[in-house]
Design a protein around this nucleic acid. Structure first.
Lengths: 345, 345
DNA sequence: TGTTAGCACTCAATTATAAAGATTGCTAAA
DNA sequence: TTTAGCAATCTTTATAATTGAGTGCTAACA
């Protein structure tokens, strides 16, 4: 249903006034008249507010307080009324500067992104990286330790895996030979490839089966770690939430802190995003938080890695600013990671 | 000043009852009589409480509420009255199991320690590792990227450094020769050694000065990173605090969350510990938190690394349990790290 | 038909007052 | 030295009264 221009103006004004207010204060007809519509009487505005309420975009806390936007009101605003806030050059530079000057690991990228977003938006930010092909094996070494224990060290350009295990032999020469074969086979290969059973079997069976136990165990360790480092989540600005009066209720705030502290439950929300564009979920229940909104954007990296960056904030949030910041960060991430592939062996 | 046995018993009873209570309730003479001293009348106990108050160990919230321990009361209790709680075999195994089965990096150790402590004590835990000699250089590679940019990759057993920089040349052969020399000089050397100017000059000037620019830049990068990874702090269980009624005041809780979220200010507290033994700071102001206590213990690793593990909790805290857990964790850390040196190349 | 002034009505927020309950300090007796 | 008894103190809870912001509705007006 289409709104008259005046209704649009009033709905936007209610939302923007409410968002700006420190304490989530309801917006009264008088306030709207004084600040947005001096040519109308408050009674006229009241009529309009009433109409907007009947359409479901606004609501009442009680008979005699001003209006507050509903979930539907925010959705209408986001889809039709909101104008995207242009970032200033200074803001853009500020964001970009956080990624300048270094080639960085995925872990590094998501941590920096989360911090950057939370600083720029003043909301809590979550950045998640899906399975990645970026980690490439640089070195594999096997050390004898004791008859029943050997040390496996695998170095990638993203991290170092080291794990004690039992390889079936503690003979230094055997371990040397086995690791030489492994090195020849796998150095330069992405970690994620090792998870692929077909690839493993194809490559390994060609060789001597003498070291089968060693190979299996080492490749299992690599596979496991590959799953591990490919699921990376970073949260920044957990303390931002508390600036919003929605969380002045101590129970709500405690719940929020607890959810962010034990953040496994948040992964699914950021994992299944195929969206190229910004996605906004108003009043998202999935977070486990009441009346919170989640905005997210997915970056597609050349090598197939997907990074999803988002903010979590109160439903009453500055969507426009958040969207602009997310877009800028996403673009910066893609630029940083996609122009780099050439020389990263 | 020495207390009579009865006074000792009463002071301990007040503290233990207060600590056990959910809501930091003051302890009354009647309660003490019923639960600890059935043979005395409440009036007698009141007289003793009064005496203990005059000595500074207890205080009043207002005329007609029970007694609450003061900072001095806790200190007296800790130094003279408290008996250290023995952990059960099960609790010990629980702690140790968190460190089993893997050779781990310092980062890993401090994260695991913090989680373990916070789980075992139900307080927030902070673990800090001072400068370390553990990171040993495993590989150094230099890649040409563009006339003005080269990529430096340094692999250690603790992490991977990669940084874009300008090395003065983009010639592949030159970079190869330079990195070969660097590898020969530095592989197997601890990262921390590179910071040492004397060592650098001594080792590098012996060689051709042809690659001086390259050497200087690469070693600078390593030095910088060495400073970086040697100062490691991990916090776990930030949400534990909120279970204690002291933090039901939303402002206090917010402050605590904010301090833990931006934790730089906590480093000095955990950095300057020379103590081998447990140190307890009741009502520590250094944290920026009101009426909080900090308990910490320092582990000395063979290679000179110092790891300080601690808990932060309300002044009204179970000191006995916390001390036992810290001691157990410290011992486990030392065992884990000190028996491992042999086979970690 | 859309706009507006005016006024009764509603309900949260604030303030005031009273009553109940827990605990102490003190006194005097055991 | 210990204890019973009691007034005094101060929090907590409950209840009531007051205030004030803001709406909804009606009737008049452009």
């Amino acid at each position: 249903m289409d709104l008259s221009d005046r209704k649009k103006k009033i709905l936007s004004a209610v939302i923007e006034t409410n968002v700006k207010s420190k304490k989530a204060e309801a917006v009264s007809s008088k306030q709207l008249q004084e600040e947005y519509l001096p040519k109308l009487s408050s009674a006229t505005i009241r009529n309009e507010l009433n109409a907007l309420e009947e359409m479901g975009y606004l609501t009442h806390l009680h008979t005699s307080s001003g209006r507050v936007p509903t979930k539907e009101g925010y959705e209408k605003y986001i889809s039709e009324l909101m104008r995207e806030k242009k970032l200033t050059t200074r803001e853009k530079e500020n964001i970009q500067s956080n990624f300048a000057n270094k080639l960085i690991s995925i872990r590094d990228i998501i941590e920096r992104s989360a911090k950057t977003i939370s600083k720029a938006t003043n909301y809590t930010s979550i950045v998640y990286s899906g399975p990645s092909n970026r980690a490439v094996i640089k070195d594999i070494k096997l050390y004898p330790v004791s008859p029943t224990t050997q040390l496996v060290v695998v170095v990638t350009n993203e991290n170092v895996i080291n794990e004690l295990t039992y390889l079936g032999t503690n003979n230094e020469d055997d371990l040397k030979s086995a690791s030489d074969i492994l090195k020849e086979l796998f150095i330069g290969k992405p970690l994620s490839l090792i998870k692929n059973r077909d690839f493993r079997n194809k490559v390994v069976t060609k060789e001597l089966t003498k070291y089968k136990t060693v190979f299996d165990r080492v490749l299992d360790i690599i596979s496991a770690e590959s799953n591990n480092i490919s699921n990376n989540l970073s949260i920044a600005g957990k303390d931002k939430l508390m600036e919003y009066s929605e969380f002045n209720d101590i129970e709500k705030f405690k719940k929020a802190v607890s959810i962010f502290e034990n953040h496994e439950s948040l992964i699914p929300i950021f994992d299944n995003s195929d969206d190229l564009e910004v996605s906004i979920n108003v009043g998202s229940d999935d977070t486990g938080l009441e009346d919170c909104s989640v905005i997210k954007i997915t970056c597609n990296i050349n090598d197939g890695t997907k990074i999803t960056a988002g903010v979590v904030g109160p439903m009453r949030m500055d969507y426009s600013k958040a969207v602009s910041v997310l877009k800028e960060v996403a673009e910066t991430i893609e630029n940083t990671l996609n122009t780099e592939g050439d020389y990263d062996e």
